[in-house]
Amino acid sequence: MSSLFDPAQIGDIAVANRIVMAPLTRNRAIAGNVAGPLTVEYYRQRASAGLIIAEASQISPLAQGYLDTPGIHTPEQVAGWRQVTDAVHAEGGKIVLQLWHVGRISHSSLLPDGAAPVSSSSRRSEAKTFTRDGFLPVSAPRALRDDELPGLIDDYRRAARNAIAAGFDGVEVHAANTYLLEQFLRDSVNDRSGPYGGSIANRARLLLEVMQAIVAEIGGGRTGIRLSPLTTFGGTTPLDSDPQALYGYVVEQLAPLGLAFLHVIEGETGGTRNPPAAKPFDYEALHRSFPGAWMVNNGYSRALAMETVAEGKADLVAFGRPFISTPDLVYRLSHDAPLNELRADKLYGGGAEGYTDYPTLAA
């Protein structure tokens, strides 16, 4: 029987405990969308996590969806992230980078030459995004052409290679929260014909080709993926017409790739674990189909996390907002100590306040 505080092997990555810092967008990249000195300190403070999944980072200029989010497609961005990974490793931690393409959840002011966002279709989202003028409705997207998709896959491959060059222990592919890869997966958005639309197999094709390319580049043991079968992430996308069949197929196809982990968001991202509008969903069926480490996420308390790992229902538990407010979360969970209060008004953008100034219990 495993404990939440036991070490584990996640593919090629040995971790000191089973507590994961989930990827958290904080909008504090400096000029050039580079991770700066504050970001170095932020992750260094949280290096006691068994694994840190660093915040979503765009794989190309066209992949950006929010102001001041870091990238992993320029030499300057690689160098900035190298300072982060060196700091985490010096503290004994492990860290992977989440690879991100937002697709239609973007605004033209954030994209090269005011370009339109891209997606599986031209269907516009009702979401808003964070720009220099505050939160604005996202721009209307254009549908990617089939002949553009090999270049997109190469962007993911290069981003994975850059992440390893930046010192990361691996990558997590962001295929959740209604961003680009999920925009191809779900029939509520993807209205394409041809090889990347229509059937479940066709809608899953892009995701699987991306994963195959990354595994070929850096190895399955350093590659993970994040899925969110039931999330609408603030109402930006309706669910697929048959989530169980869709995500069941995806996980079955991922299984032979030898991935290090699968990170599943149970329920609505940042919300309820059992959305009232959703049909019952069998996450355990997905778990049984996947041979790598199984990571769960969404509103886990200390008690539920400990119980879930002890009963073998998951190998790892990811915590999001608790890690924002509590840099020594692992210590506090192990000692059943109270956590710091989160300052929600400091989540996005700004400086050290609400970012690197939360105290440890010792302090």
Rank of each mutant, 00 (worst) to 15 (best):
L62S: 14
P75G: 02
Y331Q: 14
G134N: 04
S48H: 11
Y156K: 14
V84E: 07
T308Q: 13
F323A: 12
D68N: 15
R302N: 11
R142S: 07
K94Q: 14
G151L: 03
L67M: 03
P327F: 02
K279C: 06
W294C: 02
V309A: 01
S122R: 15
E182M: 07
R161E: 15
T308D: 14
A87E: 01
T232A: 05
I52W: 02
D328W: 03
V118R: 07
T356S: 08
A363W: 10
Y42R: 00
G320H: 06
N297S: 14
P117D: 01
G198D: 06
A245Y: 04
L304K: 15
L4D: 03
N177Q: 12
R332M: 08
L257M: 13
T231Y: 00
P7R: 05
A260D: 00
E76T: 04
A31G: 11
G220W: 03
Q9M: 06
E182K: 02
F233V: 11
E307V: 05
D242F: 02
T308R: 11
I164N: 14
P229Q: 00
L316E: 07
L152G: 14
V102I: 13
F184V: 10
P75L: 03
F319A: 00
G92M: 07
L99H: 04
L136P: 09
T236Y: 02
S188V: 04
E217W: 02
M21I: 10
R82K: 15
V210A: 03
A79R: 08
G71N: 04
L149Q: 01
A255F: 05
I72H: 01
A277Q: 15
A362T: 10
N162Q: 09
A159H: 03
L136Y: 06
R302P: 11
I52T: 05
D315H: 09
Q253F: 04
F184W: 00
E41R: 15
A213R: 02
D12W: 10
G351D: 13
R157F: 03
L230D: 01
P7N: 05
R26H: 06
A201K: 15
G270T: 07
G50T: 01
D155R: 10
R192L: 13
W100Q: 09
T74V: 08
Y196H: 10
G36F: 05
Y43S: 04
A213E: 06
I153V: 14
E307H: 15
S325P: 09
P150Y: 00
D191H: 10
P276E: 07
L149F: 07
L62W: 12
G170I: 00
P75D: 08
R142Y: 02
G151S: 12
L4F: 12
G114V: 06
K94S: 12
I200V: 15
A143G: 11
L38R: 05
L181I: 01
G221D: 01
A363V: 13
G50L: 06
E41M: 11
N17V: 04
S2I: 07
H174D: 02
G65T: 12
Y355D: 08
A90K: 11
L206N: 01
L97P: 06
L51Q: 00
L333S: 02
V34L: 01
P141D: 00
M21L: 15
L239D: 06
M1D: 13
